[in-house]
Amino acid sequence: MCVTGPGTIDAALTLAERGAILVTFGDMIRVPGSRLSLAEGRAQGADIRVCYSPLEALALAQEQPEREVVFLAIGFETTAAPIIGMLDRAVREGVGNLSLLTALKGVPPALAALIQDPECAIDAFLCPGHVSAIIGANAYQFLAKTHHIPCVVAGFEALDILHGIRSLLVQHIEGQARVENPYARVVRANGNPRVQALIRHYLHPEDVEWRGLGVIPGSGLALRPAFQDFDAAHRFGLQVTPGRVHPKCLCGDVLKGKIMPSRCSLFGRGCHPDHPVGPCMVSTEGACAAHYKYVSTEGATE
């Protein structure tokens, strides 16, 4: 969500403006586009529906065959799974009025890009548990073997995270670099091969822009040409541009850990949780929103 470019939001609003029903996860509703967020577009009459499961978009398309339904497909491999599960069903059932506006992304190429950035100076990765459930712990082997970076796959209980950080510290102190998987109750070395096969069948890697991080080679998951009828951009002849980001927004540097949120000149001055300028200020878990809540309100400094 944080790394979805404003151009994707703009494209979604353009399709809604032309009469499509746009279906999105609730997470995207407040993310700023170049000029408007989806919530602001909805207030102007755009038909935007919030779903919990992508299957709701399929059901909507089947209920209203006279309307075009566009699903805003954002997320990493975890979320690609249900989205492709839905697409697979739509393809097999021959649904003709449903398409995806895709901004799906893969995690390993982004990690590879981050370690190439000398300013980041990354020592270790606490790897995302539910992404790993799909791609498998082995997907991080190249980081440990080739780049000597410790990787630990963590679950989401507080104790999972603490345990993960401890494992990373132990590796760091011992000068080791290996992939550990204490979240084995959910994650296997080879992940979920069934989902991987579906993703390979429908999607292929492409170079895409990450909000704040620039273009990362091979990090996007785009629909293969064989399924371009289900690609909203192709179907409606839409060019998805990077969009316009506020020139002073430093979310990219915050995401990379280069600066504390309060170093951004917009932080608390034009960008705050009620009126986010950058994506890190949108959800309560965003680095800027958390910093705003915990640090600025307690009067502490960095």
Binding site: P82, A133, G155, R185, V186
Partner: peptide, 17 residues
Amino acid sequence: HAGFAIKKLDEDEARER
């Protein structure tokens, strides 16, 4: 996740954890 089962849980591992 989002209405889909994306993985089975390994019960022995879960109990141990």
